[in-house]
Design a protein around this nucleic acid. Structure first.
Lengths: 215, 215
DNA sequence: TCGGTAAGCTGACGGCATGACAGGACAAGT
DNA sequence: ACTTGTCCTGTCATGCCGTCAGCTTACCGA
């Protein structure tokens, strides 16, 4: 499948090597959660993993390289997000439920992976194609489903013709991602988690169907 | 007002000093546009400004400190965003125009300041209160206006009672900011700039009024 | 059991950025 | 010209980066 795991200098990693590698990745993940991306140093990660910087460089070209690895793993898990929309209806009460469950699942996924997603977002915004592709991989599953849903409703005449399904879907997905990243920010605006979700679901439903949900 | 500009060691900066300081800020701004935040080094900024690292440290505690300065300046200019909504109507054709102009102005502002906004966003997401406050300062102007608009329509019975104005407004603002940050991303989804704007405006209008715009 | 071979790890090193300081250059007033 | 306070930089100790040679460990076939 993905081929063997290799060290920077071309050797194949065995059991022990892979364990060390994974430990480094885990420690890096922790560091990303606890300190600013800019301040994450190779030496700190290595120390935390109980090994030396030289070992780190055996498995990863640099911090960024290791981050990409973590992000890739997460993106693969992120494929589950597709299930939030596969075969769901956007009509009537079912539509409202679909919308709610999408918001719920999305926010939960983002909250679980917030540290790494922050970095992926930054990399993507800075124009780094590698991060960009990973971000796409995660969002595409949701985006395509949403886009299809809009397009289908459009073909039935339930949505205006001058709506661009991809643009609407992309904007909604971007909204979900942004709100998830700044969930704490809403508290300062006096909005609690529990209140936020239904309002987000409302916006998603409005965006996809153009109509208020029937609850 | 803001008091005198001071160096790190407490001296008051004169004409020449302020010029140097500003030059350093300008060069830092440029660097942020052209290279990843993580790789921006004091020595590079200093070289670009035709001075030495020591000079940089005379005016700023570190790179982050200087970035905060730039962000603060930008946040002040960002007050202009309020004008996009002050005294606008959300009813009928006027409502559609309000929505369009908001999207236009917002995207333009974000595009002009994308480099620094990326960093502010990251800092805020990482939980740094200083960046967080700056992000609020920028978004609040728009957010409050939007929130008021929703609340007003709500009091007139045109919007459902269980809608939380602050949550909806915050989500819409987050959407605008996120889409602006990843404008390039939409091109890969086959969505052009020109197509994006009206669809965003539609979503904003739907979110605020709960109805499709009359064009 | 015993090498042989490849994987795994680290000490050590040159290079570079950081951050602090003291002292020299410069402008302005007297 | 002299003084004063601002402004800049040479220099230095410190610490991280990224690489390499070389040592240790695990696996495997004879």
């Amino acid at each position: 499948m993905t081929g063997q795991v290799r060290t920077v200098d071309g050797r194949v990693a065995g059991r022990r090597g892979q364990a060390t590698r994974q430990k480094l990745l885990d420690c890096l993940s922790e560091m990303l959660s606890s300190s600013p991306y800019r301040d994450v140093k190779v030496i700190d990660v290595a120390r935390k993993a109980g090994t030396s910087p030289a070992t780190f460089y055996q498995y990863f070209p640099d911090v960024e390289g290791a981050v990409l690895e973590i992000a890739e793993q997460m993106a693969t898990e992120g494929g589950q997000l597709t299930e939030l929309l596969a075969g769901r209806s956007w009509v009537g009460k079912a539509g409202w439920q679909t919308s709610q469950e999408l918001v719920d699942g999305f926010l939960e996924f983002w909250r679980r992976n917030d540290a790494i997603l922050r970095v992926v977002d930054l990399g993507a915004a800075e124009g780094d194609k590698r991060f960009y592709k990973i971000r796409m991989k995660i969002l595409n599953s949701v985006n395509n489903s949403l886009s299809d849903a809009v397009a289908e409703l459009q073909s039935k005449g339930r949505v205006d013709k001058d709506v661009n399904p991809a643009a609407v879907a992309g904007s909604l997905v971007a909204m979900l991602a942004a709100v998830a990243s700044h969930q704490k920010g809403f508290q300062t605006w006096g909005v609690k988690q529990a209140e936020l979700k239904p309002n987000l679901a409302l916006l998603v439903h409005l965006g996809v169907t153009g109509k208020k949900p029937t609850k």
